[in-house]
């Protein structure tokens, strides 16, 4: 721990106000999403707590009928917008983290394998990556979603939607990781410490996991951060297009999709607050990723 606090990375973090602020914002958002049941004033998915009379209450103003007042107003069904955002962010973040984790594990493994083993293994993996890279990830995600929708029975579709989203976004994103890890692996593989490990008699798997992997992780960390922002945006986009999280489990994107309908009739808050939350989330993660990339790039020092 003392080593970490003394490290150049932490020093660079401490002296970058942008990094500190975005870390705090991101941490606050993540924490309030994780503890949504404790933070949120109401549970928007508990029909008992809803009162249709509270519908379309403007923020910070008492409702005409019930006199209740809501921090960020309510939507058409009288749900507290603030609470729906907290619960929605939970889904957005869960999908984002899970998708990036999935893509990362898959990408690191395939990248290490193709970089270290080479030959046909590499050709097949990297050609597949090239083909997939030709197609934008959002399109790949939509296709996977579409196909998955086609093969799952109608009654399970809503339940499966979140997992299909994770699969779709994760599968569309592994290429980034695999390419970077493969590139870094090729560099590391030619270094003599790998030759030394081979001379000791270590097996290829041990060399890949124990020797090479720790040395290729710093670019992975940067990509993972940026991918997290991209995954959150991709999830929001898919949900906005109606091919993502179902209305029964609304993510931020679903909330924006719902809010868009009320924008022209003047109930701006139903759209604005989820949109602003999404922007803050993506922006703070992006800023962190941006800082991390500069801080970990030794050539910029």
């Amino acid at each position: 721990m003392r080593r970490f606090l003394d490290s150049d990375l932490f020093y660079s973090f401490r002296t970058s106000p942008v990094a500190v602020v975005s870390f705090i914002v991101a941490a606050l958002l993540v924490l309030s999403a994780v503890f949504a049941p404790l933070v949120a004033p109401t549970n928007p998915f508990d029909p008992a707590s809803l009162n249709l009379m509270n519908g379309f209450t403007a923020p910070m103003a008492p409702n005409d009928f019930t006199g209740e007042s809501f921090f960020m107003g309510t939507d058409d069904q009288g749900r507290d917008v603030f609470s729906t955002i907290l619960y929605g962010m939970r889904i957005s973040l869960f999908v984002g983290f899970a998708a990036v984790l999935f893509a990362m594990v898959l990408g690191i493994f395939l990248g290490l394998l193709s970089g270290y083993v080479g030959g046909w293994t590499e050709t097949i993996i990297m050609r597949a990556a090239d083909v997939q890279l030709t197609f934008p990830s959002i399109l790949v995600a939509m296709l996977i979603f579409g196909v998955a929708k086609g093969i799952t029975p109608v009654e399970y579709r809503d339940q499966m939607a979140i997992w299909v989203l994770i699969l779709a976004i994760g599968l569309s994103d592994w290429v980034q990781f695999a390419r970077v890890v493969r590139g870094a692996t090729l560099v590391e593989k030619s270094k003599d410490y790998v030759a030394a490990a081979r001379l000791i008699g270590r097996s290829p798997l041990t060399i890949m996991l124990r020797h090479i992997m720790p040395n290729v992780l710093s670019p992975v960390l940067v990509i993972a951060t940026i991918s997290l922002a991209l995954a959150i945006i991709a999830e929001a986009t898919l949900s906005f297009l109606g091919v993502g999280a179902p209305p029964t489990q609304p993510s931020l994107g679903t909330l924006i999709r719902i809010g868009q309908g009320f924008l022209f009739s003047g109930e701006w808050w139903i759209l604005l607050f989820p949109a602003a939350t999404l922007l803050m989330l993506a922006l703070s993660v992006n800023l962190l990723g941006d800082w991390l990339r500069d801080a970990l790039n030794p050539r910029l020092k």
Binding site: T237, L241, I256, L271, L278, A282
Partner: peptide, 22 residues
């Protein structure tokens, strides 16, 4: 530009519509 990268395309569209059309 970082805000631009963090702003999903659909939100940009909605904002533009709100501002220039509505």
């Amino acid at each position: 530009s970082l805000i631009g990268v963090s702003l999903p395309t659909f939100l940009i569209g909605i904002l533009l519509i709100y501002l220039f059309s509505v």
